[in-house]
């Protein structure tokens, strides 16, 4: 677990998101610091996914502001944001290797050779170097999600967003994905995870966020969050998911 961080890399101020009349995000403000590991939980429909999807622009917002900091890596540029989805969203017609090299070759303009070298390094990090030539459908769910993590790593993100990365997985595959995510957390990258895996949260989170009804209800370090949550709704939620 890393300690308190310096710089704000994501700054959300008064963000509203409407789906018709339904307010999915209700004046949400949130700061994420460089290197911070944040875990967001809450009941379904509370706005967790919408929150992280509004960070990288997958949801347009109706009010407020989301700003992403500049980072200093060979000059100054916007921090790059990777994302891992609940449903993996791998490209089914491309092999694992092609899934991983598409972004680096088309966006970062790497040569095929360089892109493949980077892809192999990323596959090593998610512990499936031997699956490079397979199609996604030939892999198990856990392997597919690890490929999806590797695919986002290949773009060398500064921040990585996880949107319920283990919710679509069979129980026996959840751990292999969580292990990879713990490894990533140790590497110092900024992470925001929407997940109900509280064991994982306790291991890696610097900050716990609880959402309900489109609002951030509780935001605290894990020690406080799990032992002495302030809001009643958060207490009830934790009681439901921790005691069974």
């Amino acid at each position: 677990m890393t300690s308190v961080h310096s710089r704000v890399v994501i700054n959300m101020q008064g963000v509203d998101k409407l789906f018709g009349d339904f307010k999915a995000l209700d004046s949400v403000s949130l700061q994420v610091h460089e290197g911070e590991k944040m875990v967001i939980c809450g009941p379904s429909g509370s706005g967790k996914s919408t929150l992280i999807r509004s960070i990288n622009g997958l949801e347009d917002i109706q009010a407020g502001e989301v700003s992403i900091a500049q980072v200093e890596v060979d000059g100054s540029r916007d921090a790059r944001i990777g994302m891992v989805f609940q449903q993996f969203n791998l490209f089914p017609h491309l092999t694992v290797m092609q899934n991983l090299t598409l972004g680096p070759m088309r966006v970062s303009k790497l040569s095929r050779l360089d892109a493949e070298a980077r892809a192999r390094a990323c596959l090593e990090r998610v512990q499936i170097p031997e699956q490079a030539d397979k199609l996604p459908r030939q892999l198990s769910g856990g392997q597919q999600q690890r490929v999806a993590i590797a695919r986002s790593l290949c773009m060398e993100p500064d921040i990585i967003l996880f949107d319920e990365p283990t919710s679509a997985l069979d129980p026996e595959m959840i751990n292999e994905v969580l292990e990879v995510m713990v490894g990533l957390a140790d590497s110092g990258i900024t992470m925001i995870c929407v997940t109900h895996e509280m064991g994982f949260a306790k291991r890696v989170a610097d900050t716990m966020v609880f959402m309900d009804g489109g609002k951030i209800v509780e935001q605290s370090p894990p020690e406080k969050f799990f032992n002495a949550p302030e809001s009643l709704r958060c207490q009830q939620f934790l009681a439901k998911i921790l005691h069974h």
Partner: peptide, 12 residues
Amino acid sequence: GQYEAARTLSLN
């Protein structure tokens, strides 16, 4: 999800 994945990879 395919569009979203492409977008998060910054593909044009």
